[in-house]
């Protein structure tokens, strides 16, 4: 695995948009000039079931197509998954976990039994309610992920998300603005 390649695993529940988040993340990162992959975990689909999706991003073309075993970042859309799914699977000491939760980093670190330095928290559900009006945590978590990775271009991401959402919601500009606001807010609020 190339040192420059970043691998991400998203955990969510069916319907929370883990797959959509990975796809949207990939598309927007690609628009900033990087190679990407986004792929879901393939299994039975039902609302509420724990699901995973994955991203690879790299400056160079990505030629591998195997699953991601040692993710650099794990994004958890639903904090209840911490109790029920092995979300830290494959995570090494340099791996980072970003959780949508109202808990503190130390509380999450204790639950996950990993170092506090590896944990980032953001209340993406609250942010989504304030900005979009619905508990759809996937877009704000995208902002938090961009912040934690640190090397990505947040302005480019915002611009590309806007372009993408404008196509889908051209008759509902409020939704586009809400989503962009949620990304910005989570980008600013996510803390270690």
């Amino acid at each position: 695995m190339s040192a420059k390649m970043i691998e991400i695993r998203w955990h969510g529940r069916g319907g929370q948009g883990a797959k959509t988040a990975a796809l949207l993340f990939a598309e927007t990162i690609m628009a900033t000039g990087m190679y990407i992959q986004a792929f879901p975990e393939y299994g039975p689909e039902r609302m509420g079931a724990p699901v995973q999706s994955f991203n690879r991003i790299s400056e160079d073309p990505i030629i591998i197509h195997s699953g991601i075993k040692v993710p650099n970042y794990v994004v958890i859309l639903d904090s209840s998954l911490i109790e029920s799914v092995p979300v830290t699977d494959g995570l090494d000491k340099s791996g980072k976990v970003i959780v949508n939760t109202s808990l503190s980093t130390s509380e999450v670190a204790e639950k996950l039994d990993i170092s506090i330095n590896q944990v980032y928290v953001v209340n993406a559900s609250r942010i989504a309610l304030e900005t979009i009006g619905k508990d759809i945590p996937n877009t704000p978590m995208l902002g938090a992920l961009v912040k934690v990775i640190g090397t990505l271009d947040i302005d480019g991401v915002l611009k590309n998300v806007k372009t993408k959402l404008m196509v889908k919601f051209r008759h509902k500009p409020g939704i586009v603005e809400g989503n962009l606001a949620s990304i910005k807010m989570a980008f600013n609020e996510v803390k270690s």
Binding site: L23, A26, E27, M30, Y35, I36, Q37, A38, F39, P40, Y42, P61, I62, H65
Partner: peptide, 12 residues
């Protein structure tokens, strides 16, 4: 092409 690995993987 390979099912899911290629068919469902978004890439450039």
């Amino acid at each position: 092409m390979d099912g899911f690995i290629t068919s469902h993987c978004m890439e450039v």
